[in-house]
Amino acid sequence: MPLGLIALAIGAFGIGLTEFVIMGLLPDVAADFAVSEAAAGWLISGYALSVVVGALGLTAATIRLPRKPVLVGLLVLFIVGNSLTAIASTYEVAMLGRVIAALCHGAFFGIGSVVAADMVPANKQAGAIAIMFTGLTAANVLGVPFGTLLGQHSGWRSTFWAISGIGVLALVGILALVPAIRHVAEGISLRQEIGAFTSLQVWLSLGVTILGYGGMFGAFTYIAYTLTEITGFNATTVPWLLMLFGVGLFAGNWIGGRMADKSIDRTLLFFISALLVVLVLFGFFAGNQVATVLALLFMGGFGFGTVPGLQSRIMQYAGNAPTLASGANIGAFNVGNALGAWAGGLGIAAGLGYTSPIWIGALITLVALLVIVLAMILAKKASVASPQLVAAG
């Protein structure tokens, strides 16, 4: 395994941590800046929106540049943003820091996916991408609980100083371990990168990403309410149950990457179908504690098991201009996150109860399943019509 993949995973760990850890620190941040928790929540929403902007804008702006220096620059941006949040004297400055840090998020994962794939043979590319995304899953399993604990005992700013330190470690690692690969997109113009979006399969892949991720987060965003109000767990057990969900993310990412190296589309079909089954069963048995524990584990596993395949699929159908499409797919994950949270919230607001986000998530996942089936059918027809076409699955 190329050591450069470890450096990319450390960067992914820091970025995942800065995105998610603030959820557990919102009361402290709100009290420090004397703002409502709703206003503090914009530090999460503002981050997510900025990820989408950065995924497209920064990726497009750096298309013609060598990828290793771009990754270094993105990590510098990440360090500056988190340091600014850590020293912020006002809510507005903290928000600015969050926006700056978020701008690097989508571009780092998009470009990093291409770099990770370039470091290994073609038949191991999905696995290489999965190794990078292992950092993101580790951020959920270990980083968020310990980052929250650090913030609660030493002040929320200490967590962001720690995140900045992780950014420095990743920066050094990339400088030392990631090779300056002569990338295949050399000579590719922005127009050619945009041209990747003329492929229907690229758009179908983006749709599966939004809907598949949206289905999982539709159920997960309000999971604390489900666990305490429906399942009957004590609130103090919720963080440990969420760690179990994170274990599922970790395992799903690892298994999904290896399966996708053999067949991308069949892997996606399997994981999305399994996620749908898990969500339906969870909806029926949310009142049972044992069933809920199992549902959390498998929801994380099957939900995140799609990630390496989704990222590999869009890069494959983008052909020789995969960078912007790869970044767009990272933005699509965040759009799915927002879609799931919004749709699940509608169910609760409509008085349908705290299991309604699970059923809404299942419905979104069903649509994702229909889209990947359609994409597979169209890909098969295209490969029959044009035998030289390289299909994804």
Rank of each mutant, 00 (worst) to 15 (best):
L3N: 13
L3M: 12
L8K: 04
A9V: 03
A9C: 15
G11E: 03
L17V: 00
E19Y: 02
L25V: 04
L26E: 01
P27L: 01
D32E: 09
G41H: 01
G41I: 01
S45T: 00
Y47Q: 01
V52I: 09
L71H: 06
F78M: 07
V80K: 01
N82M: 03
L84D: 00
T85H: 03
T90Q: 08
I100C: 07
L103G: 02
G106A: 09
V120C: 10
P121S: 09
M132S: 12
F133A: 08
T137C: 11
L142N: 04
V144A: 07
L150P: 11
G151M: 01
S158Y: 01
T159F: 05
S164Y: 08
S164G: 11
I174N: 11
I174C: 07
A176I: 14
H183T: 11
V184G: 11
A185N: 15
A185Y: 03
E186I: 15
A196S: 07
A196M: 04
Q201K: 15
Q201W: 14
T209I: 10
A219W: 02
F220M: 02
I223R: 11
I223P: 10
T228G: 11
L242W: 01
G248E: 13
G252R: 12
G257L: 14
K262G: 13
T267C: 00
T267F: 08
T267V: 06
L276W: 08
V277Y: 04
V278E: 05
V293T: 12
G301D: 13
V307W: 05
R313S: 14
N320H: 13
A321T: 02
A325Q: 03
A338Q: 10
G340V: 00
A350V: 12
G351D: 09
G351Y: 13
Y354D: 13
Y354G: 02
S356Q: 06
G361L: 10
L363K: 13
L369C: 08
V371K: 03
M376L: 12
I377W: 11
A379W: 04
A379P: 09
K381G: 15
Q388M: 14
L389Q: 14
